[in-house]
């Protein structure tokens, strides 16, 4: 029982990060109809920025802020500098360009900073929080959960309650009509990319300290799992990303705890296959998946 509680808590904390990253993928998908395979690599660049800033100033919080800014800046640069050139005719040119971008960013980081893992410290107490005598969370895990939930709530508010959110949604779903109504669709697209990349950078920044340390490949698995989450939840659905994230986080944690860590990727694959066969557009797909 203790064991189960513990695994559930761990899975929840990890799942929150997956959900956040998956949400960033959903944002881009909704705005640009592109699965951004470069999201992980872009986020890791922003995390390097945060690492540098924290190293220079000694402040974790300045690093966190700079990661968000850097993430937005990278989103801007990628949208304006690269993705604009994706030919519209071919359905997967966006995916292929994004994959090219992953290669460019990761190898550039490798050339500049080398392959070694750089430890990232966090300003939190290492002592665990006990519930009923069972250590469930470290304070950092709690911080991760709170931040993830807060950011998701803020995004929900942004999209449903503000004029900017309305414009973002409008230009994603009906670009021509929105343009006629005076929405600057192109600018909305760029804002969507910036927002998404910033969220992804935050997720990466939250995850890296729990792993070996920062290196150019730090977000490889995060991307794969978050992508699974987004597909499981439905690429069109932000609530799907949230719930999918928690489901995948819990599945990985429970499978690792009870069956062994080697089985985890297989479990994720099985989950993906089952969901896709039952609902090819993801659990929360409102309608049949569009032709990508």
């Amino acid at each position: 029982m203790d064991r189960l509680l513990y695994l559930l808590a761990t899975g929840l904390a990890r799942g929150a990060v997956f959900a956040l990253f998956a949400l960033s993928l959903v944002l881009i998908w909704r705005a640009a109809r592109i699965v951004n395979f470069a999201q992980g690599a872009m986020a890791v660049v922003a995390t390097y920025v945060a690492f540098a800033v924290t190293g220079l100033t000694g402040s974790y919080w300045l690093g966190l802020g700079s990661a968000l800014l850097a993430g937005a800046a990278i989103g801007f640069a990628v949208e304006r500098g690269v993705m604009r050139f994706a030919p519209q005719g071919s359905p997967f040119s966006g995916v292929i360009i994004a994959i090219g971008l992953v290669m460019v960013l990761q190898s550039a980081l490798g050339i500049l900073f080398g392959q070694q893992h750089r430890p990232m410290a966090v300003p939190f107490d290492e002592r665990p929080i006990m519930i009923a005598g069972v250590p469930v969370f470290s304070p950092y895990d709690l911080f991760v959960l709170v931040v993830a939930v807060a950011v998701m709530a803020a995004l929900a508010l942004l999209f449903t309650r503000t004029s900017l959110g309305l414009q973002l949604r409008a230009s994603a779903f009906a670009p021509e009509v929105s343009r006629l109504l005076g929405v600057r669709v192109s600018r909305m697209l760029t804002i969507g990319w910036m927002l998404s990349a910033a969220v992804a950078s935050l997720a990466a920044l939250l995850l890296v300290p729990t792993e070996l340390g920062l290196n150019p490949h730090s977000t490889d698995m995060l991307f794969v799992y978050a992508f699974t989450v987004a597909v499981v939840g439905g690429l069109d659905s932000p609530p799907g990303a949230l719930i999918g994230g928690l489901v995948v986080g819990l599945v990985i944690s429970l499978v690792t705890g009870y069956l062994g860590s080697t089985v985890a990727p297989i479990a994720v694959l099985v989950l993906l296959v089952v969901v896709l066969l039952v609902r090819p557009g993801g659990i929360f797909a409102a309608r049949e998946a569009r032709t990508a």
Partner: peptide, 19 residues
Amino acid sequence: LRGPYLAGLTLAVVIALPA
């Protein structure tokens, strides 16, 4: 499956190979 969903499935297959 279509486009990104197929790409995602095949991606998960490669990741699961060592496992």
